[in-house]
Nucleic acid binder design. Structure first.
Lengths: 218, 218
DNA sequence: CTAATAAGTTAGAATAATCTAACAAAATAT
DNA sequence: ATATTTTGTTAGATTATTCTAACTTATTAG
């Protein structure tokens, strides 16, 4: 297995690559707050382990193996955050620090149990995807419906915090994945939305609902 | 703060001291599966930090500071075990490995939340006391079930000598912490007990079992 | 297109935690 | 009470992760 330290390099590489495409040693150094020569030698070490493609003076890239390992760490991080918020009732602002440590636990049963307790979520409440058990991630860009504006037409693509009650509510309104929703207007005082979809010309969705619906812009 | 490694030495010292009084470097070395010279230099280091009293060729002793630090680590370990069993529904035999890692997390809020969710327990699923927030242990006095008499109603509070097999046995009989047990009668010749608990009206527990179950009188 | 700046590399040292080999002290066994 | 065994210590090496200083390559700004 990989050390705590190596795991942090992998995760940082993965995140930087998703934020900006190519990753330079300098960016990685700044992100980790570790000096360049240290980063440099760690890159050579990770290249030995076939986790990183390393060539002098070229940008850094994770190998497929490296991406998988990083994905699995991020999976543990995001499952932990979900668990802390939904099961232990922490606030979202409190969970990052704890997850930052728990992502390094080697405890498959523990994370599987979390996953089950959470109903096998695929995105976290910020809309970030949770990598699957093979470390793969779907990097679709979702917006919360609540962040859209009047006039937008969007496709319902995912649901945050899918409790049974919430799914029953969605079913009763005919809101299924893939439904096209047109935003007619938004109330200022409570942010509720007047929308149309399918054969319904004018339905009202509260902010509580719209911020749990993830959509893709048309 | 202390390193993961230092914490493991403190914990081992604490546990050995509670098992056998004085602790020799040799015992510590065997317990941790770390060679003597390594243990020796770590003891000097911990002595520098005022966590251990170290004198050449004398037994090892934790300082009060060392006892407190060790107690807090063990607190985290036992709260974690409790949480895994009661909230996440793990079996008693599954939780040690996970707790072994989680005891090193630096996350006060996390453990306080656990503590609250568990109702501030003072004893863990293996029957060991949970140190309080200052690292101190209160040695509450439990009775062995085998020392109770017919007619008593008691609450199962802890388990002595909890091997995997024993936990499996208890699980299979539905004997979990907190269960109320009524003693219907006791066989004279082999001291086995006829008891009722939950929906079971007449179960028989051998003396081998009853002397490992710690209970509180109602 | 050079000169200056930024980024990347190499070399060498420091710290933490581990080891083996060799030696010293304490405990034990005859 | 002395020889043997066990336990404890010292010395020196090894690996992982980090650093600073010095040097090289690449990029950018006149």
């Amino acid at each position: 297995m990989h050390s705590y330290t190596e795991e942090n390099y992998l995760k940082a590489l993965f995140n930087l690559a998703n934020e900006k495409g190519e990753v330079s040693a300098n960016e990685l150094s700044k992100r980790l707050e570790i000096k360049m020569p240290t980063v440099n030698s760690m890159m050579k070490k990770l290249a030995e382990k076939k986790l990183v493609h390393y060539e002098s003076y070229k940008p850094l890239r994770l190998t497929d193996k490296g991406k998988k390992e990083a994905g699995l760490i991020i999976r543990k991080h995001r499952l932990t955050e979900m668990f802390l918020v939904q099961v232990m009732e922490f606030g979202w602002e409190q969970v990052h620090e704890i997850a930052e440590q728990m992502e390094h636990l080697h405890a498959p049963d523990f994370f599987e149990k979390m996953d089950a307790m959470l109903g096998y979520p695929t995105i976290d409440p910020h809309g970030s995807p949770i990598p699957d058990k093979s470390g793969k991630i779907s990097w679709k860009q979702y917006d919360k419906l609540s962040d859209c504006k009047a006039g937008d037409t969007v496709k319902l693509s995912a649901v945050i915090n899918g409790t049974d009650d919430f799914f029953k509510f969605l079913n009763s309104r005919g809101l299924q994945l893939g439904v096209k929703i047109k935003i007619k207007s938004i109330e200022v005082f409570d942010k509720s939305m007047h929308v149309s979809y399918l054969k319904k010309a004018n339905e009202t969705l509260s902010h509580t609902v719209t911020e749990r619906l993830l959509v893709e812009m048309e």
